[in-house]
Amino acid sequence: MCTLDGCGSHEHLGPPPKATDEERRLFLKGAVALPLAVILADPMLAHAAGHGLDKVTITTPEGDEMVAEVAMPATLPAPTVILIHEWWGLNDHIRAVAAEYAKQGYIALAVDLYGKPPATTPDGARSLMSSMDPAVATRKLQASVEFLRNHKDSTGKVGSVGWCFGGGWSLNTALATNIDAAVIYYGNVKKTPEQVATLNAPIMGHFGTLDKNINREMVEGFEESLRIAGKTDYQFFWYDADHSFANPTGGRYDGEDAMLAWERTMAFFDEHLS
């Protein structure tokens, strides 16, 4: 099941997008490109797509250390994006998405807020999530923003994007830093007007009408908090889909809505980070 903090099912309710054996063979040889959804749905392809990221150590002023992974685009300098993982932790899925962001022209930093191997079961993910110190996570994300803004190949523009658990933390990053844009995929947005008072970045949110936890009541409450705080630079999109609809490794994947959300996200980052 899915909770406010993450999605806890890897069961497929329908067939995921799938590469043929020949497409898989050619992709692994570097001879063909495949759609991102097909790559993410295949563990072998996702691992291959994300294996080329470089590890970097980011240190907060308080001395907290985080090993993150960065994917570089072909053309530099470039705008930058922080990718924040689901409750599973930093896995091949997120690495592969970071690699795709690099192909789209961004320096993509996949952070690891846990500092531990990713979980493969809901119980494991729940344990990782509950053991994380939110204050330390906030400091790590603040340091990540500074790392990217001051990167020698950066244009100085920084965005954030996250899914489920990471969606909530993408919002938290926008509240705690001076990033230039933030995207939230079905993340916890339960915030008071006082909590959103520090928000200066434009934000985009993607939500599913069938999501029973990150639901319309929560999102409308968030909108009300934004209005009370005088924040107007936001846009939220609703899809006839469930929680985690953009993840092809889960049973709630909706290919059409996932693609539409991706296109909207790319246009949003292009507007605010280019």
Rank of each mutant, 00 (worst) to 15 (best):
D240P: 07
Y239L: 05
R227T: 11
W238S: 06
F236E: 04
F222G: 11
E220G: 01
K231F: 11
E223C: 12
F245W: 05
T249D: 02
L226Q: 10
D240T: 09
Y234H: 14
G230L: 12
A241I: 03
T249N: 09
Y234T: 04
F237D: 00
D242H: 11
F222K: 14
F236I: 15
K231N: 10
R227G: 07
W238T: 04
G230I: 10
I228N: 04
G221I: 01
F222W: 15
P248C: 02
A246E: 04
L226A: 10
A229C: 06
H243Y: 11
E223K: 15
T232K: 15
N247D: 13
E220P: 00
H243W: 10
D233C: 03
D233A: 13
E223D: 11
E224L: 12
S225N: 05
A241D: 03
P248Q: 04
H243F: 03
D240W: 05
A246C: 11
T249K: 15
T249A: 08
E220W: 09
H243T: 09
Y234K: 06
D242R: 13
G230K: 12
E224A: 14
F236D: 07
R227F: 08
K231A: 01
F237Y: 13
A229I: 04
G230Y: 08
D240G: 09
K231R: 15
W238K: 12
Q235V: 00
F245R: 04
T232H: 15
G250E: 13
A229E: 06
E223G: 08
L226G: 10
N247S: 11
Y239M: 06
F237M: 00
T232A: 12
F236C: 03
W238F: 04
F222Q: 11
H243N: 13
N247F: 07
A229M: 07
P248V: 00
W238E: 03
Y234L: 06
G221C: 06
A229V: 04
F237E: 00
P248R: 07
A246W: 00
E220H: 14
S244W: 01
Y239H: 06
G250A: 13
G250P: 00
F237P: 00
W238L: 05
F222A: 13
K231S: 03
D242A: 13
Y234M: 07
L226D: 09
F236Y: 14
